[in-house]
Each structure stands twice: as structure tokens, then as C-alpha cells.
Design a protein around this nucleic acid. Sequence first.
DNA 1: TCATCATGCCGAT
DNA 2: TCGGCCTGATGAT
Length: 332
Amino acid sequence: MPEGHTVHRIARQLGLDLVGHRLAVSSPQGRFAAGARRLDGQLLVASRAVGKQLFLEFESGDVLRVHLGLYGAWDFYGRLTPLTPGAVARGSMGAPRLRRAVRMGEDEREVGADAGIDHPFPPEPVGQVRVRLASAETVADLRGPSACEVLDPSQAALAVARLGPDPAADLAEWPGYAPLSNPSTNGQATDAALGSAPSPRSVMIDRLTSRSVAVGQLLMDQSVVAGIGNIYRAELLFRARLDPHTPGRRVPRETAGALWDDWAVLLAEGIRTGVIITRDLTPTEHTDALTDPTLRNWVYHRTGLPCLVSGTPVVVEEMANRNLYWCPTCQK
DNA sequence: TCATCATGCCGAT
DNA sequence: TCGGCCTGATGAT
């Protein structure tokens, strides 16, 4: 299930295998029939992720905006370009081109490398497929999204502008969009002096430190910083040894900046591997963690277990309508 | 085999 | 604050 890293991986997969192709767009489920008609037959020109949202730009300027919500996912069939070495993959890497399906939207796994050989292409839709994007060789099926809509360019720009900065978004190449998320600059204090647009990092710091809401809530607020979900929230706070209840206003700017920097590192690593590993592990442990979720994190899903640093039992409480895991000894 | 829960978020109430 | 989305993993039965 999707925090920002997953959506970036999906954007990249679609970028590799469907961008530059003229697509057959359909809605086997029927709930997106009108939108599918509007996009059917168009060239897909760009695939971008901002936070947890996916923006697919077509030649007409129409943009398909997708949010996976809690259990949305993309299923890929047919020819797929391997994303990144080091990613979670069962079966051989760089194996045969033909794969029955690769699911993205949860911890990813590849269904047997040659499982598709006996199956027709394109395959029958499985379950409630809201949208199918199909080139001659690759099919991407979207199921269970919480948002799936066609926007015109100005509506899409508005949707992006409503989001906080994302360290992995490269909006510089997206003409007309908020100049918020150019990750190449990390502008410390020079923005004003240079008269340039504020850096994403400084935007995040400003938004996080200007409110009295608990930092544990602010990290989940997609207008403060985009892409962080419940796991990354808990783990970022632990890594910073920060009490989740600290009001944003009381978080020193240096601490807020360190949170941004750490998020950028964790996100990049999540995009690379496809899983959320937040502990500092040896290479061997890291390999084990790719297949064993219980090895990956400091506090997430570890209620009652001893904190790996202090030994204090990890506690869970509700914050921002979600379970928040933290160590009362380390984070104060 | 069944019930519950989950890495999210929106809109109705 | 609650239900919807309508999936898949997990743990209880």
C-alpha cells in the first residue's frame, strides 16, 4: 500500500513502458467510462508523481489524476522494463520480458517470471478495473483507487499547488506548475536574498514550524509535506528522537530541516527498493529485511515490543485518525 | 473459512 | 465523526 515511494515507482514504470505510446484507454468496471472515452487513443506524454498522487499527461493537455487511497493498486501485464536493481523481486531479475502481472501499490511482488506464457494478451481484467491503459505490448490496470479523474491543465496545476513539497518530484520540467518542488536547490537562507522562489525545503520548514498542531499530525498533512504516510511518519519522528506531540511551533527550524533531509533520504531509498526500510542495517540484514517486514522499522507495528534503542516498550496511540507508534523514552 | 484491519483521503452528516 | 472505496494480508475459528 502506497506512501509516496510507491507512487513514484508507479510513475516511473508507466514512464518507461507507456509514455510515448498511443494508448487504448478503457474502464472495464464502467465507473470511469466517460473519462476513458476522453483519453482513448491519445498519446501519453508524461507520467509524474507528487506526494501520493499520480499525474498522467496526455497530448491534448488532459491530465489523469489518480490517488490510490488505502487499497488501490496497479497491475502490470506484458512487456515491462525492470525498474531498479535492488528492488524487491521474486523470480529472477532481468528474467524473461513476459510476466503475467506485477502489482504495485503494496509491497511488490512479481508473479512467476513465465507465468504469463499460457495466458492470452491482453489478459482478462481481474476484479474491478477502474481504468485500463494499454499499448500494443503493455497493459496497466488500476483497481480500487480513491480518486481517478481527468483534469484540464489549469485544474491539474491547482491540484499540484494544493500539495506541499515532495523531495522526489521534479516539477521543473512541468511547464506552468508551481515552482515549489525543485529539489536541485536546497536553499537554506538565500531564497529571499536571491529573489528566487522559495525552495521546497524552506517551504516545508515554514509550514511545519508555523502551526501549533502536533508535529505528528503535521507530517501527515499533505499540504505541509507531500508523500509521508503512517509508517514514514512514525519512523521519521523516531529517527529524529522527536516527541510526536510537540507543537509545530516548538520544533526548531534546524530540526524541521533535518526532518526534510531525512525524508528525502528515506524516500529515495524507498523508491529504489520498493519497501520502507528505516533502520540502519548491515548489507546482510538489509537483504533479509527486503522479505521480512518485521526487520525494517524502529517502532512501526512494534507495540509492546522493547524499543531497539532504549528497551522501553513501544506504545501506540491514535493521532490524526491513525495509529501512531513511538518510544516514550527516546522521543521526548 | 471468516472477520478484522490497513502504508488514505474525501464527502456527507 | 462516519461511511465509502471494494483489495489483500493476517489472525482467529
